[in-house]
């Protein structure tokens, strides 16, 4: 097991270096020169040269990359072309908002996805099964941003129940400790702020989590159907166990093993979907920041965000793999035999 963990952890390093090379070459080699965009069309040649030197763009690309990599390893992701602030700081300021949204979305997706999947499998071919399939199908087919728009139309425009955008009423913003409003509001003991932040979170996390919910529903259903057909479930039933115990204890526990991996993968995918969700709900996270930075050609910011997201994605996958290995005795056994 230990060997498997070490091997798996070490695999992260070449992947991250590779991603950094890909992104760096995209931004510095293939992209148009940012100088005229940053300095304006009428900048003099002299100003452009000075600016390029100040940002290290006059050096050979390999040197630029190695400088960047060395800095990145120490947490220095460079400086934004526009705000002149450190990219790490700029990202750090917006990051908790995105993570808070993604966590809310994955919680929503997991709870409802597993629930729908289990019900669909247990009541196979019933109306519940059909409804589950329909939700799963629409969930993977509807564009996140359109779903967000529909939710705003209905819950904010028509019912006036929920706010249409933003993270919190600015007057209620809790003192920043962690940047996670849920946590900060609890620390401050400010229940009004907590309630307001939660209300703001409902629609964006629904919109963002719907796709993952659909995937988790499908996965849970097929995995449950497989377990329900197994010998040990029949045995449990033959023993006279109550159906709820058979389903809950015997079938569900084993079905959830593959579902954990899917949830892990979906969390990574959510960070991509957050780009669009944040755009719709004016959510002040890194998603909106990425789009704005790309439109402005603020390459250091884009590079930093892509690297960070890739790191999270790879780490989450790593954790999901390890959890899977932990839960599934067959994998543990195989690696034991191997080592």
């Amino acid at each position: 097991m230990l060997k498997f963990i070490i091997k798996r952890v070490l695999m992260v390093i070449p992947v991250m270096i590779g991603v950094s090379i890909i992104v760096f070459s995209l931004m510095r080699v293939f992209s148009p020169d940012p100088a005229p965009i940053v300095l304006g069309q009428h900048a003099t040649q002299e100003a452009i040269t000075t600016w390029r030197m100040a940002n290290g763009l006059d050096k050979p690309v390999v040197v630029q990359y190695l400088t960047y990599l060395w800095g990145a390893l120490q947490g220095d992701l460079g400086v934004s072309y526009f705000s002149k602030a450190s990219v790490a700081k700029e990202i750090g300021a917006r990051f908790p908002a995105t993570i808070e949204l993604a966590i809310a979305a994955i919680i929503f997706a997991s709870i409802f996805g597993i629930l729908l999947g289990v019900v669909a499998a247990v009541k196979k071919n019933s109306i519940f099964d059909a409804a589950g399939s329909l939700i799963a199908l629409v969930g993977v087919s509807i564009p996140i941003f359109w779903l967000g728009i529909l939710l705003i139309m209905f819950f904010s425009g028509f019912l006036h129940l929920l706010p249409s955008g933003g993270r919190i009423n600015v007057l209620l913003e809790p003192a920043r400790v962690t940047g996670f409003y849920m946590v900060d509001a609890v620390i401050a003991g400010d229940w009004a702020a907590l309630k307001d932040a939660l209300l703001h979170l409902v629609l964006p996390s629904l919109a963002l989590g719907m796709y993952s919910m659909a995937i988790i529903t499908r996965m849970t259903r097929s995995s449950m159907l497989e377990s329900l057909g197994q010998e040990y479930v029949r045995t449990a039933r033959a023993k006279g166990l109550r159906e709820i115990k058979v389903v809950g204890k015997h079938a569900l526990r084993n079905s959830l093993i593959p579902v954990t991996t899917v949830i892990g993968l979906q969390f990574g995918a959510l960070l991509g979907g957050a780009l669009l969700t944040e755009s719709v709900f004016s959510w002040p996270g890194i998603g909106k920041f990425t789009v704005d930075s790309i439109l402005k050609s603020d390459f250091p910011v884009v590079q930093g965000i892509v690297l960070l997201v890739a790191l999270i994605f790879v780490t989450v996958n790593l954790v999901a793999d390890l959890v899977y290995a932990y839960l599934d005795p067959r994998i543990k056994y195989a690696s034991k035999k191997e080592g």
């Binding site: 590779g18 890909i22 992104v23 293939f30 991509g272 780009l275 790309i294 390459f299 884009v302 892509v306």
Partner: peptide
Amino acid sequence: RVMDMMLSVPSILLAITLMAA
């Protein structure tokens, strides 16, 4: 391995990064 690297960035983020270039 190169495919793995591409898969470790969410596709829509990778696509808009490409669009930037």
